[in-house]
Design a protein around this nucleic acid. Sequence first.
DNA 1: TTTTTTTATGACAGAGTTGTGACGTTTGCA
DNA 2: TGCAAACGTCACAACTCTGTCATAAAAAAA
Lengths: 226, 226
Amino acid sequence: MTKQTILIIEDEKDIRELLVYNLRKDGYAILDSGDGKEGLDMARSKLPDLILLDLMLPGLDGLSVCRELERGANTASIPVIMLTAKGEEMDRVVGLELGADDYMVKPFSVRELLLRIRNILKRHVQAAAGGSLSRHGLSLDPGAHKAAVEGVSIDLTATEFRLLENMLRHAGQVRSREQLLDDVWGYHFEGYARTVDTHMRRLRAKLGAAADLLETVRGVGYRFKD
Amino acid sequence: MTKQTILIIEDEKDIRELLVYNLRKDGYAILDSGDGKEGLDMARSKLPDLILLDLMLPGLDGLSVCRELERGANTASIPVIMLTAKGEEMDRVVGLELGADDYMVKPFSVRELLLRIRNILKRHVQAAAGGSLSRHGLSLDPGAHKAAVEGVSIDLTATEFRLLENMLRHAGQVRSREQLLDDVWGYHFEGYARTVDTHMRRLRAKLGAAADLLETVRGVGYRFKD
DNA sequence: TTTTTTTATGACAGAGTTGTGACGTTTGCA
DNA sequence: TGCAAACGTCACAACTCTGTCATAAAAAAA
């Protein structure tokens, strides 16, 4: 699960910093710009997973940015949440002129914004991602958070599940400890590489006879048997 | 499957156009009226699948329209979402007692409205098709707001019922506390995730022997046994 | 072989999560 | 108005999970 990127286009510094801080804390990678034109360029070059867009902007106003995004083949599908100050006649604007996915009126609840972002991203991700994974008698169902070996279900903790899922999604590929720390634990985790070893051991113990599905690649990392 | 029809009864032109535009984009067939009396007539003659009804209306006010709809044999089962301006003393109970399925306070998020509409329509379709949900000896009848374990009925409060219903509708899937807060409590709930725990406990207590149908998935959320 | 490097294992403490009882507030109702 | 039910919040204890470290084992290199 790679970190998702959110682009914030907002000229008010205080609000931008508030958003950057909270979104970063929530585990997103953040790009930000205080200018409409620059923000649009960033959107086109970085292709973020979601855009928070202020309506009133220097350079190029929010509506125009939105319209331009809609026009680009690569940017049209990026969900946009509009931010507006109270009294900016939002209803008409958002609804009639373009396809923002949602909008929030300032001052808004950060928590509510986070929830909406999560929901919107989830929907977009789910549209892309598939169902359950299985290989060599091991099956994982991420939605149900259930795992089974040869049909016999096994209990995994949250971390173990994420680790095994990541290995399975990259079956046949060697995964370095660093990659695993990034993907499973997250970029922010300043961990000890041996942590991965420990969890591999725990996973192997729980996998029982299927333990050898997790192969050690000495000097490199681990690999899920192809 | 034919397009579902939504009737909008709202006198403010801007809002009406906002709704027409967005709902049409979402794939619904739209009827609209700016007058209470006319709207009621349209409802009776066209029998839409859902009605968005403003509270303050010329001709005939929203509550009266709602009451009339409830009275008609053909219109009583049509779900109604009430729209009210902030400050218009809209007692939820009054509206809900009159048969409104939900209500939203202006200015509202178009996206949220669309979600609610989708949910309500889905529920109505399901209610018409099958009726009650049941699994593993637990049965729920959302229409009647009744629950039973092994045929023995149990009393659930409104929140408990919604929570259990949500779990049951996603049986086998892990539901995070955030998802549950969103779905069961709503976007605007600035709550504490422990609230979910507490309600799970209350549900389990009422479920008695069937308490283990609600499984804890540590570090992730809860899951209704598949 | 011996030495060095890398990985596996066992133990452990602290961090985090959940269940529970209690309490205060709100809401509906008599 | 007062009461009871429903609901959200909180504090706390029990428990699980998880990262870290020391050490053993294994593999590779010398």
